[in-house]
Simulated scan of single mutants.
Amino acid sequence: MLWLDGAGKPAAVCDRCCHRSAQLSKGKVVEGNIRCPYHGWSFNADGVCVRVPQLEKSAIPRSYQVSAYHCQERYDYVWVCLGEPFARTLKIHYPNGLIHLIFNAVTPIDDQTSQMVQFCFRNDTEAEAKAEDVIAFDRIVTQEDQQVLETTDYDAPLSIQEEQHMPSDKPGILMRRRLAALLKEHGEVEQRRKD
C-alpha cells in the first residue's frame, strides 16, 4: 500500500490490516494516515496504528501495527524496498585517482533462478573517458569473464571455508553470508548438488 503522508512524503506498508486482514488499499488517506475500510483503524507511515475508533478512550496496544517498508521519492519515482536489500558494493581505487564503484542487487525469481542488476559509477568525466569507450571496454571484460565463469562449478558453496579467497572476493563472500543467513532465518539449509 503506497500513499503520501501528512508531510507529502511517500509511505508504504503491507496491504493488509492487522485486525481482520482487509486490504488497506481499499481504504482512504485521512490526516496523512491510511485508514482501513473495514473498521476504520488508521496507520501511519511507520505502520503503527494511531487510531482505533472503537478504543477512543483507551490506549492503542503497541502490537497494533502493520509491516512498513523503506520508501523514498527520487528522480520522479517512488522507490520502495520490501525487505533488506540483497546487494553489495565494490569500490575500487586506482593509482591515478579514478574510483570505480560497482553496485549489484539480486532478487530471486524462483527456487532455481535469481536476477542480478549491476550499476557502475566512475568519478571521471566524459572528456576524460568517453562513455562509449568505457562501455566497449566493460563489454570485452564481461565477455572474457563469461567464458571463464561458464567453466566454473555453478553450485558454489555458501560456506567460505570450502574455497580459498583473496581480498577482491569480499563482495562475493558478503553475498554468500547473506544468502546463508536468509536460509537460516527461514529454517532452511543449503541444498548442494550430489555428484
Rank of each mutant, 00 (worst) to 15 (best):
Glu56Phe: 09
Ser25Glu: 04
Arg16Ala: 08
His93Gln: 15
Ala22Pro: 02
Val13Thr: 14
Lys28Asp: 11
Ala12Asn: 04
Arg51Val: 06
Ala12Leu: 02
Ala22Lys: 01
Arg88Lys: 09
Ala87His: 11
Glu84Ser: 06
Leu98Phe: 01
Ile140Val: 14
Leu82Ala: 07
Val117Ala: 09
Asn104Pro: 02
Asn33Ser: 08
Asp133Ala: 07
Phe43Asn: 00
Ala68Asn: 14
Cys81His: 11
Val106Pro: 04
Arg35Asn: 06
Ala105Tyr: 04
Leu98His: 00
Gly97Asn: 12
Ser58Cys: 09
Glu84Val: 12
Phe119Ala: 12
Asp15Val: 02
Phe121Tyr: 11
Thr125Asn: 05
Arg20Ala: 06
His39Ser: 06
Thr107Pro: 00
Ala129Arg: 06
Arg139Ala: 11
Leu101Ser: 12
Leu101Gln: 14
Lys91Val: 12
Arg122Asn: 14
Leu149Ile: 11
Gly97Arg: 03
Leu101Phe: 01
Cys14Met: 07
Asp76Met: 04
His70Thr: 05
Tyr94Ala: 14
Ala59Asn: 13
Arg62Thr: 11
Gln65Arg: 15
Arg62Trp: 03
Cys49Lys: 01
Val78Cys: 05
Pro37Ile: 03
Asn123Trp: 06
Ala87Leu: 11
Val78Phe: 08
Cys81Gln: 08
Ile102His: 03
Ala59Phe: 09
Gln146Cys: 13
Ile92Pro: 00
Val48Ala: 01
Asp46Glu: 13
Val13Tyr: 07
Leu149Met: 10
Ala68Cys: 09
Phe119Cys: 12
Tyr69Met: 04
Gly32Asn: 01
Tyr38Arg: 05
Tyr69Thr: 04
Val80Met: 11
Val66Phe: 02
Phe86Gln: 10
Cys120Met: 15
Gln143Pro: 00
Gln23Asn: 13
Val48Pro: 00
Glu84Ala: 05
His39Lys: 00
Ala22Trp: 05
Ser114Glu: 11
Glu128Ala: 14
Ala131Asp: 15
Lys130Trp: 03
Ala87Thr: 07
Thr107Ile: 06
Leu149Asp: 07
Glu56His: 13
Cys36Glu: 05
Ala87Trp: 03
Glu73Thr: 08
His100Gln: 07
Asn123Gln: 05
Ile34Thr: 04
Ile109Gln: 11
Ala131Thr: 14
Gly97Val: 07
Val117Glu: 15
Phe86Cys: 08
Lys28Gln: 13
Ile102Ser: 13
Ala59His: 12
Val52Leu: 12
Lys28Pro: 01
Trp79Ser: 10
Ile140His: 07
Arg62Ser: 15
Gln112Leu: 15
Thr89Asn: 09
Val13Trp: 07
Glu128Ile: 09
Glu150Phe: 09
Asn96His: 02
